[in-house]
């Protein structure tokens, strides 16, 4: 397969995944922001949303204050934000057009329809909750549809594996980013533990990665910060956990090395990261610093992305 094609498939999958994640962040933030301050705390939820999306710098260059209007516009529609949902869909479609032959008709249809549909939504209309809700479900459904059509229609060959790698690297990055921004609410703090204030923060984190129901099934307990962290970092049953993402990353890289008859730095470093996640215990992570653990992970995940690019995509 052409390196450029593989590169496009990889990034196409990343952009769709990113768009879905942004939609979840907006959704969780709207929910938190609507709570009375006695429940949600006094922190500015919209500021935190921008940080979680990883575009705080860019945002504050364009806006002075993080408000519902400015943040939703920036995260969903701004052409100046290369990671806004709109930019993600646009880039995804451009990528899709340039690798049309590597996509199945269903995948193309998912992207192309999303791009056509996108023009129906305008930022101004989204101030009404009804419109925002339908917009966010549209974005999430696009993610499901694209993912589902890739899963159901793509040949199980290198193109599929590169596309999965894109999804998983992006997903791991997103999950880690939420933890990175919200780690302080997960840290044990005598004053707040068990208080209603953090409770809603924790559930917002879980909601943002669509893991609230899963939490209850796995732990059968009320929300505890260390269990939230355990679920998102180490639990390999949870599809958005770092552990599960790396399961899949290692598997897809192995498929590639098997098909191509050789392996390289990408395989080795992915395996090293997975082993670390397998051997880690949540207590130890808290002990040595949740924040440090997560920042290290984000760095390593980025380096793996670069290694994949180096090895296959250029």
């Amino acid at each position: 397969m052409l390196s450029r094609t593989a590169d496009n498939l990889f990034w196409l999958a990343r952009y769709v995944e990113r768009a879905e994640y942004l939609a979840r962040i907006i959704e969780a933030s709207t929910r938190l922001a609507n709570l009375p301050s006695a429940y949600a705390g006094t922190s500015n939820e919209w500021e935190s949303a921008v940080a979680t999306a990883g575009c705080a710098n860019l945002f504050f260059q364009a806006h002075e204050k993080a408000t519902r209007e400015t943040v939703i516009d920036f995260l969903a529609f701004s052409p100046d934000n290369p990671s806004s949902i709109r930019s993600c869909f646009e880039t995804a479609r451009t990528n899709a057009r340039s690798v049309r032959t590597a996509l199945t008709g269903e995948m193309w249809d998912a992207i192309n329809s999303a791009w056509l549909e996108l023009s129906k939504y305008r930022a101004s209309g989204l101030n009404q909750d009804e419109h925002l809700t339908s917009f966010l479900s549209f974005v999430k459904e696009t993610g499901l549809r694209f993912d589902g059509s890739a899963y159901r229609t793509m040949l199980r060959s290198d193109g599929y594996w590169f596309s999965r790698l894109g999804v998983m690297i992006e997903r791991a990055d997103n999950t880690a980013r939420i933890l990175d921004v919200k780690y302080h609410v997960l840290l044990p703090d005598a004053e707040h533990v068990g208080g209603s204030l953090d409770y809603f923060q924790w559930s917002a984190i879980l909601r943002a990665v669509s893991a609230l129901t899963a939490y209850h099934w796995v732990y059968k307990e009320s929300l505890k910060p260390w269990l939230v962290a355990d679920l998102l970092i180490l639990n390999d049953q949870m599809p958005r956990s770092l552990a599960a993402c790396y399961e899949s990353i290692v598997r897809n890289l192995d498929s590639l090395s098997l098909a191509y008859g050789r392996q390289g730095p990408a395989q080795r470093s992915a395996r090293a990261i997975r082993t670390r996640l397998e051997n880690a215990r949540i207590d130890d992570i808290f002990q040595s610093g949740l924040h440090e653990f997560v920042s290290d992970f984000i760095g390593e995940n980025n380096r793996l992305g670069a290694a994949i690019t180096q090895q296959y995509l250029t």
Partner: peptide, 14 residues
């Protein structure tokens, strides 16, 4: 995607 080496055309693949 293409390059030429010793008068042979190649494409860059994965």
């Amino acid at each position: 995607d293409l390059f030429v080496k010793a008068d042979i055309v190649y494409m860059r693949t994965t």
